[in-house]
Design a protein around this nucleic acid. Structure first.
Length: 911
RNA sequence: GCAGAGGUAGCGAAGCGGUCAAACGUGUAAGGCUAAGGACCUUAUGGCUCAGGCCUUCGAGGGUUCAAAUCCCUCCCUCUGCACCA
């Protein structure tokens, strides 16, 4: 590592930035603005390297844009909404050992831990303060004046949320409904994924109930494949099970005992009418409500007492379990039923028979067979001609349509099951509950989706490939439950039993940043919808008391909005980002729609995912202390696009080397002169190319590539320049300053330091971003340098061979090709620019000879640029000294006279 | 299942019709520098050659083209998300 006192340097420049108020931009209509934001973190722990990656990317962009002359706003708030912090408080209160260990590992004092157990708000405050300090020390150029937090703990923000939801309701996109959730009957709350000790990822699945009737009594068969009702040959019940007769919404249902609780928690009005002996209906017939046929009721062991209603529709032609059970009855001469085909799969004669053969008749085998048949028929199946209204439809379509058919004849209902066993952390098994009084945002609305799509089409999305995915997500979007009945948050203004849930109260909060530092000058009692309507939409206000401050708020919003760049990680693609898009689309006019989104992958450490247990060891605080902020900021170059980025401290060495090189070269400047050689043209050309590439890549948040040019390619070019004998003071100085500027957004502290050591008084961040001098870019010069390098490589190869033979080179003679060879070469290059076929090129050229033959013989080695004889001579003769030094022998450069020389490839003769 | 992304040398990762045996980083090996180690510099790192050459490679198999890692088709495999949860 290069030795420098990073702590001192960091403190020094932080102070300078603070003095200059560099990160506290004011409205200035004469200056172009850019508004950047990163998600609002949830302060349930200390920020770690994963955060560093996302914030680092945002900060590089912010500093880059500042240098490009933009007035940059980069604010940061904190999100207190939700349940987990309260959960953390309870765990601390309970003295949960794991939790306490984790907090202690993060350096939380015993006194603070005690307070955590008493007050969730204190946890929020503690960690948000920490986060602020960590981000600041890591060099984030954040305007902290505008920080705020959410929930009713901040009544101003709550007013903003209330306004927003009233407005959404007025727009007709909020409605009250019901929603199935996995529910803990003990704690009486939904069990989210992280609240489960078993069953992560399991979710409610809806079974269709088809009502078969026997007189007035209903046998409700639960099924995932209602479209096969045309092929039902019988019903299955299980004589070993206990059944009940229930009054369900005024109808008499026969169901297995376990279904009672489910139906109750799924909003059915249930009265228990007592035990029902199912042997009473065994072998009796029931009426299929769709076909009106009478079919028998049989018993089968495979009917699961815990699943659904305990009544199963038998479709032996399309269900392995049904066929297997029926076969047994037929063998015992208890039935003579024949399966009925209702789905055709091209090229398949009897899918169920085939699959049973394949997977076997064990329970596992039949389960596999069932999944297989389900999949095949769903994907490839077509409903047969005996299926009434759904005949000829694809299975998926038929399944959708049959629901309507059943509904019309009042023969359907539904029951939810969980896709797998879920156990709550409290130890109780989860069930599906249909919760009432849920308020939904109607993201399924087609005209709303149209707005969302329109916004996406107009937005810059980085990486670009994600645009199609965003459009797909909008298509897939369904109504979103926007409230819940617990946790921290803002109560829904018209139904205070519900709290706006976290993802729904953080869709347009970026607008709040524009006024967050001003709004609290107005007493809370005077904050109303009219104020927000005025500030955001310029509608009339009759508040004269706060005229001045309101006017400022209005100006701030008008100036800063829309948001120019939203930077976030990929886990938000299917939740936060689409909501952010949709809510902006419906609430704001097009001129205020966000302009760009940049998405990044996750950070891995030495190729391993950052697991929760590792967070404590990977805090930003710890790493800044250990390595310094600049070195830590190297993490922004760890990845690109949505690929996962890998961080390893190995890379620090590479950074240090290059920083050291810049500093050393800066110190050597005094020994340089003012001679200008071809290599100086090369330096100018190469660096201008690098400026261009760096700028383009920073613009689209491709920071790994940007840094590759700014930090690696640039220094490689400067080294090559010095190697080849370049010693022009002005040019080297310019090169060092340019590179320092190019890498400044990523490594702000050390670059400020280098810049001041170069004798500059002002801040580098206030300097202009290096401009590309197109005049200086010369393809010819760069190709000649490449030719020089290639030739050097060839010489080396030949010398190595000679050495093997025991020969030592005494002299190297390089001969540049004849002028007329260059003419031929360039003619071919010209033709090859449009015609690519070697045969046709030769035809068109009309010249023959060994040179033409060799230049056009290999299709992938056609000349593709113009070369100049004088330039080629110059580059070699100016490098003569260097070549002699490199190879330790005499070198002679000749012009013409050797047939072996071709343009771009001088003849090498070694004596 | 649905949706999206992707499979390139030991590893990571560029390239997205012709300057591709394939940038760059890292690893490995040899040499230099060092008292030594680290750091640094040079070179090598698909195979065969041994005067700058040739041959075979970019998940598998077909196809288009004078020319394919790059375009088209089929197949195999991997990753991510699927919601009321931050």
């Amino acid at each position: 590592m290069v030795d420098y006192d990073f702590k001192k340097i960091e403190e020094k420049w932080q102070e300078e930035w603070r003095k200059e108020r560099l990160f506290e931009p004011e409205v200035d209509t004469a200056q172009k603005k850019i508004f950047i934001s990163v998600p609002i973190p949830y302060p349930s722990g200390q920020l770690h390297l994963g955060h560093m990656y996302t914030w680092g990317r945002a900060d590089v962009y912010a500093r880059f844009m500042r240098m490009r002359g933009y007035n940059v706003l980069f604010p940061q708030a904190f999100h207190f909404t939700g349940g987990p912090i309260m959960g953390l408080r309870d765990l601390v209160k309970r003295g949960d050992q794991k939790t306490l260990d984790r907090l202690r590992a993060q350096g939380v004092s015993e006194e603070d831990i005690k307070k955590f157990g008493e007050d969730a708000k204190y946890i929020c405050q503690y960690f948000s303060k920490k986060a602020m300090d960590d981000l600041t020390s890591a060099g984030m150029s954040i305007d902290w004046r505008r920080r705020f937090f959410t929930t009713q703990l901040n009544p101003y923000y709550s007013k903003f949320i209330e306004w927003q939801f009233r407005k959404l309701k007025d727009l007709g996109v909020v409605y009250k409904g019901t929603h199935p959730v996995v529910w803990c009957p003990n704690e009486k709350t939904p069990i989210g994924d992280h609240d489960r000790s078993e069953g992560e990822g399991e979710s409610p699945v809806r079974y269709t109930i088809i009502k078969f009737t026997i007189g007035n009594v209903i046998l409700p068969a639960a099924t995932l494949r209602p479209e096969t009702v045309y092929g039902a040959t019988n019903l299955w019940i299980n004589l070993k099970g206990e059944y009940l007769k229930l009054d369900v919404n005024g109808e008499e249902w026969i169901v297995v005992k376990s279904a009672k609780e489910k139906l109750e928690s799924q909003l059915k009005n249930v009265k228990d009418l007592g035990y029902f002996d199912v042997s009473e209906i065994l072998n009796k017939t029931v009426r299929n409500p769709v076909t009106n046929e009478e079919i028998p009721v049989f018993s089968a062991d495979f009917v699961d007492m815990k699943m659904g209603t305990g009544v199963v529709m038998s479709v032996p032609m399309h269900a392995p379990f049904d066929l297997d059970a029926l076969d047994r009855l037929v063998q015992e001469n208890l039935s003579s039923i024949k399966p009925i085909r209702v789905v055709n799969v091209a090229g398949e004669d009897n899918l169920v028979e085939a699959s049973i053969k394949k997977f076997g008749k064990t329970k596992e085998g039949l389960e596999k067979a069932t999944r297989f048949v389900y999949k095949e028929e769903l994907n490839k199946g077509v409903m047969a001609e005996n299926c009434g209204d759904i005949s000829g439809l694809r299975v998926a379509e038929g399944r959708e349509k049959i629901e309507g058919v059943l509904k019309e004849i009042n023969a359907n209902d539904s029951i939810y099951e969980i896709t797998g066993r879920v156990v709550c952390r409290c130890g109780y098994e989860g069930i599906v509950k249909v919760v009432e009084n849920q308020w939904f945002l109607k993201y399924s609305d087609l005209s709303w989706k149209e707005l969302g799509r329109k916004m996406i089409e107009r937005m810059n999305i980085y990486p670009e490939e994600l645009k199609t995915q965003f459009l797909a997500v909008i298509d897939w979007l369904d109504d979103k439950a926007a409230t819940r009945n617990g946790g921290l948050g803002t109560p829904l203004p018209w139904d205070e039993s519900q709290v706006v849930e976290p993802l729904s109260d953080s869709t347009i909060y970026m607008a709040y940043y524009t006024i967050a530092h001003l709004i609290e000058n107005i007493p809370i009692k005077d904050i109303n919808d009219q104020l927000f309507e005025h500030v955001f939409f310029g509608k009339e206000t009759n508040d004269r008391k706060h005229e001045k401050i309101i006017k400022r708020m209005r100006n701030e919003f008008e100036y800063w909005y829309p948001l120019d760049m939203r930077i976030t990680a990929k886990e938000h693609i299917t939740n936060h980002l689409p909501f952010f898009i949709m809510n902006h689309a419906i609430l704001f006019p097009e001129s205020k729609w966000p302009r760009a989104i940049a998405v990044n992958g996750w950070l891995t450490i030495n190729m391993e995912k950052l697991s929760k247990s590792k967070h404590a060891a990977l805090t930003i605080e710890k790493h800044v202390r250990e390595y310094g902020a600049d070195r830590l900021r190297l993490v922004v170059g760890a990845g690109e696009k949505i690929d996962d980025a890998n961080w390893s401290t190995d890379n620090i060495n590479g950074l240090d080397q290059r920083i050291g090189f810049l500093m050393q070269t800066a110190e050597m400047l005094g020994t340089f002169g003012d001679e200008i050689k071809m290599i100086d043209e090369y330096l100018k050309s190469a660096l201008n190319n690098i400026i261009q590439k760096t700028t383009e890549n920073y613009e689209s948040l491709n920071l790994r590539t940007g840094l590759f040019y700014a930090l690696y390619e640039s220094i490689t070019s400067i080294k090559l320049y010095l190697d080849l004998g370049g010693r022009n003071k002005e040019n080297v100085r310019w090169a060092i300053e340019t590179v320092t500027k190019l890498i400044h957004p990523a490594f702000p502290y050390i670059t400020e330091e280098i810049y001041s050591r170069l004798g500059h008084k002002g801040l580098i961040e206030k300097e202009d971003w290096p401009a590309v001098d197109k005049e200086a870019v010369s393809e010819a010069v760069e190709s000649e340098i490449a030719i020089l390098e290639k030739t050097t490589g060839d010489i080396r190869k030949i010398i190595a061979m000679l050495r093997k033979k025991g020969n030592k080179p005494k002299e190297i003679i390089l001969t540049i090709a004849d002028k007329n060879a260059f003419e031929v070469y360039n003619k071919i290059a010209d033709i090859a620019a449009e015609i690519k076929d070697p045969n046709k090129i030769r035809e068109r050229l009309g010249i023959k000879g060994a040179l033409v033959e060799s230049l056009t013989s290999k299709v992938n080695r056609l000349p593709n640029r113009t070369l100049y004889a004088e330039e080629e001579y110059r580059v070699f003769s100016e490098s003569k000294e260097w070549l002699e030094k490199t190879f330790g022998c005499k070198v002679e450069i000749k012009k013409g006279g050797d047939d072996k020389a071709t343009p771009g490839k001088p003849a090498i003769k070694i004596i």
